[in-house]
C-alpha cells in the first residue's frame, strides 16, 4: 500500500471496523454452533471449525493483506500449505492405520 492521505485514513479505519464486526460475528457463530442442539458431535465440531476457518480467512485476507500480496509471499505460503497438509495428513493416516488381523 502506498502512503495514505489523511482523509483516506478515515476510510481505511471504517473498513477495519467492518472487518472487526465480521470477525466478532463469526466468533459468536462459532460459540453458538458449539451449543447447537445437534445430536451428532462430529457435525457440531465440523460447524465450529468451519466458522473458525471463515474467521481465520477474514484475518488473513484483510488484516494480513493477503488479498493483494506479492508472488514471493504466495510462494512461501504455498510451500507452507503443502507441508502443513502433509503434517496433518500423516497424522490422520497414522490414526487410521491399524493392523487388520
Amino acid at each position: 500500500m502506498s502512503d495514505l492521505k489523511p482523509e483516506a485514513f478515515a476510510d481505511y479505519a471504517r473498513r477495519c471496523w467492518l472487518v472487526f464486526g465480521a470477525v466478532a460475528c463469526t466468533t459468536f457463530l462459532m460459540v453458538g454452533a458449539s451449543y447447537a442442539p445437534i445430536g451428532n458431535r462430529t457435525v457440531v465440531i465440523g460447524l465450529v471449525l468451519a466458522a473458525a476457518v471463515v474467521n481465520a480467512g477474514l484475518v488473513g485476507a484483510f488484516l494480513m493483506h493477503l488479498l493483494s500480496e506479492r508472488k514471493t509471499i504466495y510462494t512461501v505460503l504455498a510451500f507452507t500449505a503443502v507441508f502443513f497438509v502433509g503434517l496433518m495428513g500423516l497424522s490422520i493416516w497414522a490414526q487410521f492405520d491399524h493392523p487388520k488381523f
Binding site: 502512503d3 481505511y12 477495519c16 472487518v19 466478532a24 466468533t27
Partner: peptide, 26 residues
C-alpha cells in the same frame, strides 16, 4: 474464552490502524 477472542481481534485491528496511521504520517 470468547471475551479473549474478541480482545485479541480488537488488538489486531488497532495494530493495523497504528500502521495505517504511520502510512498517513499521523
Amino acid at each position: 474464552g470468547t471475551l479473549n477472542t474478541l480482545i485479541l481481534a480488537l488488538s489486531a485491528i488497532t495494530t493495523l490502524m497504528a500502521w495505517a496511521a504511520c502510512k498517513a504520517r499521523m
